[in-house]
């Protein structure tokens, strides 16, 4: 079987990090948000599948932190809630 491509290594794919339970809570508290208000990312998303392989099982309800390079602000951080699909 050919080795699967790690999409996270592609330069056009932003960094994805899986947050621990503790970190997730902290993020939600800092942003004064509830889980349902976060943008979503699907379990079937290629980036999430890679995360699942390297950072342990990803489950519905976990939060992924995404760090992108931005032309205007250098770095921009956002969070997404993992949902089914």
């Amino acid at each position: 079987m050919p080795e699967e491509l790690n999409v996270l290594e592609h330069e056009l794919v932003p960094e994805h990090h899986l947050l621990s339970e503790k970190d997730s809570e902290k993020v939600l508290k800092d942003l004064k948000l509830t889980k349902d208000q976060l943008p979503k990312i699907r379990l079937g998303d290629p980036a999430v599948r890679v995360l699942d392989a390297i950072a342990g099982p990803v489950e519905e309800g976990m939060i992924v932190k995404i760090v992108r390079k931005s032309l205007t602000s250098g770095v921009s951080v956002c969070y997404r809630l993992v949902i089914r699909g």
Partner: peptide, 28 residues
């Protein structure tokens, strides 16, 4: 940036919080 349901669309407007009207050709 949020919709009426209160869900987040962007964590900071335009990822940099810059109002393009007050920017200099896009630069802050």
């Amino acid at each position: 940036v949020r919709n009426t349901a209160g869900t987040i669309i962007q964590f900071t407007y335009g990822e940099d919080g810059i109002d393009p009207m007050r920017s200099v050709g896009g630069d802050p």
